[in-house]
Structure formats: C-alpha cells, structure tokens
Amino acid sequence: MTSSADSVLDTQTLADYLQAQVEGFRGPLTATKFKGGQSNPTYRIDAASGRYVLRRKPPGKLLASAHAVEREYRVLQALQGSAVAVAQPLHLCEDDSVIGSAFYLMSFVPGRVHWDPALPDATPEQRTFYYHRAVDTLIALAQLDVAACGLADYGKPGNYFVRQIARWSEQYRASETETLVAMDRLIEALPAAAPADDGRIALVHGDFRLDNLMWSDSGELLAVVDWELSTLGHPLADLGYYCMALRLPRNPVLPGLASLQRDSLGIPDEAALLGRFGTATGLDPGDAWPFHLAFHFFRLAAIAQGVMKRALQGNASSEQALAAGRMAGTIAQMGWEVLDRGAAK
C-alpha cells in the first residue's frame, strides 16, 4: 500500500491507551495514513511491539449509522477461522476521548492491494485467476452459515433490496447538494423493479471490489478488508456490485473497465462471472440482472454523494474526495440507463 504521513492522531495518548488495553502492545508508535479510504481513515501503526492497522470513524458530524467501525470489528471476530480470509481484530475502542472518534486495532496483513481492476502488472492468465478467486470468495460468503458464526442478528432478515433502496434514498437525501435527475428517477423506479424476496440470507460485504482484497506476491488471497457497509442480505448483492466494475468508466477516481479489451486482458465477462457463481451456489439472477446492476449504480452514487457532502464540510478522509463526489451524477445516469433498457426488453 502507498501511504503518507498523518499528523491528526495524538500518538502518545494512543500508545499509552493501547499499551494498557492490548496484550503485548508496546509503544512508542508512529501512525501513517494509508492511501484511499473515502470513508473510514485507516492507518499503519508501527510500534515497538510490531506493526498493526487502525481504522477509525472520521471526525466531525456524521450521518446516522454511517462509519460503523463497531460493526466491522464484530464481523472480523465472527469470520476468524472461516473460509473468508480477514485480519485478526485486536481491540475496539468506543471512547471518543482517546483519539477523537471510535476506532479499532487489527493485525497487519503484509499483502498487496491492486488499486486498478485492470491489473496492469499481471499476465492474462493471472488476471483470470484473480477475478475467479474473488468470485470464489463471494461463493464462500454466500455459503457462510451466519447463525453458526454468531451473526444471526447482524441485520434484518428478508426484503434486503427494498430496505436498502429506502436506506440509501434517505442517506442520499441527507447529503444532497444538487438535483440529480437520474437519482430521482432511480429512487422512484427501483422499489417496483426489485425481485420478490426468496428468503435467502447471507453476510453481504457491501463494498466488494478488487481493491478491498489483499494478496500475497504468489497470488494467495490474504484478507478481505473494509467491512463498514456489511450487513445481512441477499447473496446476489455483492456479485452485482463486483460486476459493476466491468461497466464503470476509466478515470483516476473510478478506474473501471468499460473501455478496455477485456478478452485480450484475460478479464472474465459478466456471463463467466455469473456462471461461476451460479454453478457453485445455484443462484441465477436471470431477468432481474438489470435491476441488480441499477441498484448498485444507485447505491454507489449515494455513497459518492455522501463523500461530496463530507468534502464540502471539510471532514472527508481522502484528498480525492471532491473528485469522487462529483462522479455521483455520472454513476446515477449509468444506473438509470441500465434499468430503463432492462425494463424495455
């Protein structure tokens, strides 16, 4: 990961606190903010006792239920020893007085993040492997027994998409800075387009994309990171979000894959990814696939709008926050187009 020095954390206070709360932790420490992270600021902690990672809520006034580091910590605990690789959680601090907001400490995973989904440094064979391995993780999530790992009450069961549309419509309205016609259309049309609930329940990551996966140099998937948006939902949810990258435009803020010759690059198309997932899980979105894509464009646009609002308020985590926020309109328009075309077929 690329990182830059950060001077926000009171490292002496943090070191004293962690030394008292975390077994084996010894200061002093330095904190270096990782690249990326439009939402929860993330830091590499280098201490006398070793290297760790800290994720915190951003400072300032936040939207209700947003930046839930407590939920991230619970998921990391639940997934220990499962088929879904994650870092080891070490300590959760809900006392804002320590560093100014709630945070948690986890183990440092010495892996690599591929920020560009085109994987420019990989061979076609390697790209195919990475994309298939990611889908295999989605399969593991879909097959996870949420009750057995202690997450039966992690979210409301049933009607996931309808509830998510309502939630993100509220979040979008709370952070709205200008009128986006496509978002208004999606907010109106998506509830009626949602497929009937089939009763399936799974742990949904909520932001499952290639740059939230950490890999070893040999290609082993070491950890799935950034569980802030996780909840109980439908097992097809993460698949739709993951496939959205195939349609997003290529630009510095959202490095999608839409304009690339994916066949020659070895990047599987939607049909191949859906087929691999469906063969293992028995789930096929069928005619509802346009809805799944449109829903995730809508949701991503709402997230981008939240980033814009925080940037205008001066408490966004990334230097690219304003640029990311300005993508909300483009993303929403893509969502409306795919839903409109699907509805016309």
Rank of each mutant, 00 (worst) to 15 (best):
Glu188Ile: 09
Ala258His: 12
Arg326Ser: 02
Arg262Cys: 12
Leu239Gln: 02
Gln320Asp: 12
Gly155Gln: 11
Leu312Gln: 15
Ala102Thr: 01
Ala324Lys: 01
Tyr104Ala: 04
Gln313Glu: 15
Trp336Gln: 08
Ala64Phe: 02
Pro58Asn: 08
Ser101Tyr: 00
Pro290Asp: 03
Trp215Asn: 10
Glu70Met: 00
Gly256Arg: 01
Tyr172Glu: 11
Thr42Asp: 09
Asp145Gln: 09
Leu274Glu: 03
Ala280Tyr: 04
Asp121Ser: 14
Arg209His: 14
Lys61Cys: 00
Thr13His: 04
Ala134Tyr: 03
Arg26Cys: 09
Glu188Phe: 08
Asp96His: 13
Thr281Pro: 06
Thr30Glu: 14
Asp96Arg: 12
Gly24Arg: 12
Met183Ala: 10
Trp336Asn: 02
Asp136Val: 01
Ala66Leu: 07
Leu239Lys: 01
Thr179Met: 13
Leu18Ala: 08
Asp269Ile: 12
Arg163Gln: 13
Ser264Cys: 04
Arg341Asp: 14
Ala302Cys: 13
Gly233Lys: 12
Gly155Asp: 12
Arg276Thr: 04
Arg71Asn: 13
Ala288Thr: 15
Arg26Trp: 00
Gln126Ala: 15
Leu141Val: 06
Cys149Ser: 04
Gln171Met: 13
Leu151Glu: 07
Lys57Val: 03
Arg167Phe: 11
Lys57Leu: 01
Val84Glu: 00
Phe291Thr: 07
Thr330Lys: 02
His132Asn: 14
Gly60His: 07
Phe34Lys: 10
Thr42Trp: 06
Val338Lys: 01
Val307Gln: 00
Ala5Pro: 05
Asp153Phe: 07
Ala316Ile: 01
His205Met: 03
Leu14Gln: 09
Tyr73Lys: 03
Ser259Ala: 15
Leu180Trp: 10
Leu265Cys: 10
Ala194His: 11
Leu62Thr: 07
Leu151Ile: 03
Thr128Leu: 10
Ala189Glu: 11
Arg276Pro: 04
Met183Ser: 07
Leu190Gly: 08
Leu9Arg: 06
Arg167Tyr: 05
Leu265Trp: 14
Arg262Ala: 07
Ala311Asn: 06
Gly233Cys: 13
Pro110Tyr: 09
Ala302Asp: 02
Ser259Leu: 07
Arg299Pro: 01
Gln77Arg: 11
Gly256Asn: 06
Glu170Val: 04
Gly240His: 04
Leu210Arg: 07
Val75Cys: 09
Gly24Val: 10
Gly111Ser: 10
Asp46Ser: 14
His234Trp: 09
Trp115Tyr: 13
Arg209Trp: 10
Pro41Asn: 10
Val98Lys: 05
Glu270Arg: 14
Val86Gly: 01
Pro249His: 05
Gly50Cys: 11
Leu29Tyr: 03
Ile187Arg: 08
Ser259Val: 13
Ala148Asn: 05
His292Asp: 00
Ser317Met: 01
Met1Cys: 03
Leu151Lys: 07
His67Phe: 11
Met244Ala: 13
Leu79Tyr: 09
Gly60Leu: 06
Leu339Met: 10
Val225Ser: 09
Pro110Thr: 08
Leu141Arg: 05
Asp10Arg: 02
